[in-house]
Design a protein around this nucleic acid. Structure first.
Lengths: 126, 126
DNA sequence: GCTACCATAACGATGCGTTAAGGTCC
DNA sequence: CGGACCTTAACGCATCGTTATGGTAG
C-alpha cells in the first residue's frame, strides 16, 4: 500500500472526525475515498484528507452536508481548467454568496461564544 | 391577564427561541409554563423566561435537553431552603462537575471559532 | 490462525421544522 | 365576527451513534 493511501481509521484520526462520520460522508457523496483495497477497504489519499479538512469547519457554522457538497463543487469548478465561462461565472457568484453567509455565521458563533462565556461565569457565583 | 404573564409567542420572541422549541421544552419537562389560560393557552411568567434564558446558552455548548434539566434541578436544590444536607451536598458536587464540563466546552467553542475564522479567510483567497 | 481493523446493514436518538385541522382572544 | 394567535397530533429529517454480524490485513 503506497504511503499516501490510508485506511479509514487513520484518515479519521488525522482529520479529527469519527470513522462513522467518514462513512456517512461517503454515503451522501460529500467525500468519496479515491480507492478501495482488493478486499473492499476504503483508501483515502492526502487529497481526500484535504477535502475533509476543508469542509470540517463548516459543521460548527451550521451548514448542512448538502451545502458542503455545493461548496466543494463550486471550488472544483473554479479550480478546474476545463470549465466553460458560464459555469465559472455562476460558481463565482455562488462563492460570493457563500462568503457572505459564512461571515454572518462567524458573527453568530462569536455571539454564542460570548454567551457561553457569560454562562460559564454565572455558574461560578450562583 | 396580569402583565407578567405572556403567551408563547411573546415569550419566544423575548428569549430568542422558536415557539416550537418552547413547546418542545415543555414536552420534555425542561421548562413548563407556570399557568394556562381558561382556553388552554400557555402562560409564561418572568421566572419561566429566566429559566429559558438560563438554559439557552447550553445548546451551543452541546448539552442535551436532559442535561439542561439536570442543571436546573441542581440549581433549584441549591437555592431551595428546604433541601436536606445530603441532597445539597450531592447537588454541589454535580454543579462542580458541570463547571468543569462547561469550561471544557467553552474551550472547544473557542477552537471552533478560530477554525471558522480561518475558514472564512481561506474563502477570501482561493 | 490471532489480532486489529474494516465492511455492510439497520435500528435509534436528538431536536426541533413543518403541515394539518381546528379552538381562543379581543 | 375577523384576524392574529393559540392548541394538539403526527410525520419528517439531518447527522450521525450504536449494535450485530462477518470479512480483511499482515
Amino acid at each position: 500500500m503506497p504511503r499516501e493511501l490510508m485506511q479509514i481509521g487513520e484518515a479519521a484520526e488525522r482529520v479529527g472526525l469519527s470513522v462513522r462520520t467518514l462513512r456517512h460522508y461517503e454515503e451522501v457523496g460529500l467525500v468519496v475515498p479515491s480507492a478501495r483495497s482488493d478486499g473492499g477497504f476504503r483508501l483515502y489519499t492526502e487529497s481526500d484528507l484535504a477535502r475533509l479538512a476543508l469542509v470540517k469547519p463548516m459543521k460548527p457554522l451550521g451548514f448542512t452536508l448538502d451545502e458542503m457538497c455545493d461548496l466543494l463543487a463550486v471550488l472544483d469548478t473554479l479550480e478546474s481548467a476545463d470549465s466553460d465561462d458560464a459555469a465559472v461565472a455562476e460558481a463565482a457568484a455562488r462563492l460570493a454568496t457563500f462568503r457572505r453567509v459564512v461571515a454572518d455565521r462567524v458573527r453568530g458563533l462569536r455571539d454564542q461564544l460570548a454567551a457561553a462565556e457569560d454562562f460559564a461565569r454565572s455558574l461560578e457565583r450562583p
